[in-house]
Structure formats: structure tokens, C-alpha cells
Simulated scan of single mutants.
Amino acid sequence: MKPAHSKTDKRQMKSASRLYAVQALFQMEVSGQTVEAITREFETHRFGATYEEGEFAEGNVEHFRAIVGAAVNWQAKIDQLTDRALVAAWPIDRIDPVLRALFRAAGAEIVDLDTPPKVAINEYVDVAKAFFPDGKEAKFVNAVLDHLAREARPEAFVAPKAV
């Protein structure tokens, strides 16, 4: 019998799944591999794997699959939302492919998985910091995702009425 995971462990596993989803979406784009091949590779060789260089974090496989699947299924809508959040001179196909993968993963959670937008934004800003430690991209990611989320889920940003 597996030990029960604490709430912190579950949160960390979901965070790791988000990082893996961005990596998987990036890998799909640059390699042309199918979603099935990529998810199988990640589940077999990344989630909790130990190598000479170190150990990969354990992730939530179901959450990983849901993000990657939704990103693929909703890619056109997510890309349109992202395009509208970007400056006109920088359509999504001109930005860094890691950022493109990140916007698609975050967009999947906001558009299809009912993750609260503020949670998704915070989580993916942290993912951006993992890929781009100097911080500039994290601010950019925050601004783009805030715009994307406000367009996709405006009801999540309405202040509650005072009683």
C-alpha cells in the first residue's frame, strides 16, 4: 500500500507536472513527435527517475496528461488568446519556443481545466523562473497570462459585492 501524500506533496507533484508539461510541449514542437510518444517518454523516463546527474521530481501523471492533452486540443484557441495578449509586432510564432510551450500549458489550465486563473498564473510564473532565472521573462509571462486569463475567464476577476 502506498503512503498517503500530504497536501504539500500533492501541490509539489502538481507543480512538477506543470514543469514537465511545458518541457513535453516544447519537445513535441521541436521534434515533431506525437502527444502519445511524448507522454509515454515522460512518464517512463522523467517522473521520479534517478540518473547519475540527479533525481527527477515525482509528478502527478493525471495532471500532466490533462495539461498536455488540453494544450493540444485547445491549441488554436490558446494561441489566439496569447496573440491578443502579446504586442502586435510579436505574434506567438515569433516568441521563444519555451515561452510558447509555457503559454500553451498555462492556457490549457485556464481554458479547459478550471484551474483558478490566479493559481495558474502564479504557478507558471514560477515555471518561467526555472527556465529563465534572470527574472525578465517571469514578468513578461505574468503580464501575458494575466491578459489571457482576464479574456478567457473574466468572471474570475470580478470583485465580490459588498454585503
Rank of each mutant, 00 (worst) to 15 (best):
L102C: 09
L81P: 06
A57S: 14
M1Y: 07
R65H: 15
E58T: 11
D112M: 12
A149C: 08
V87C: 01
F157V: 08
T115K: 06
G48Y: 06
A156T: 03
S6L: 03
A37K: 12
R94D: 09
F132T: 07
D93C: 00
Q80S: 13
F56C: 12
L145I: 02
K136N: 11
I121R: 02
A105K: 08
F47N: 14
A159F: 05
E52T: 10
A76L: 07
F157S: 04
Y124H: 15
G48T: 06
K77W: 02
K77T: 14
A85G: 15
K129W: 03
K77A: 12
S15W: 05
E62M: 05
N122W: 02
E29Q: 11
K7Y: 06
A16P: 04
A24Y: 02
I67Y: 00
A89Q: 11
E109I: 01
E62S: 13
G59C: 11
Q80L: 10
T50V: 14
L113E: 07
A37I: 01
A70L: 02
F26V: 00
A105E: 04
V119M: 09
V125Q: 06
M13Y: 09
A21L: 05
F103P: 07
P3T: 09
P160V: 12
S31Y: 00
T34P: 02
K118P: 00
E123I: 00
D134S: 10
A49T: 11
R65C: 04
T82A: 15
A156M: 04
T50K: 15
E53I: 11
I38Y: 01
L148N: 04
K14R: 15
A143F: 01
M1Q: 09
A162S: 13
L86E: 03
H5F: 07
G107C: 05
A143D: 14
T44R: 13
I67Q: 01
D146K: 13
A37L: 10
M28V: 04
A138S: 15
D114H: 13
H63S: 07
A4T: 10
Q12Y: 07
A88P: 00
V163E: 11
I67C: 02
F56M: 13
R18H: 08
D79H: 06
V61L: 10
F132H: 14
M28L: 13
D79M: 04
V35E: 15
N60P: 00
K118H: 08
G54Q: 06
D112Y: 05
T34I: 03
I38M: 15
F26C: 04
F131I: 01
F64D: 01
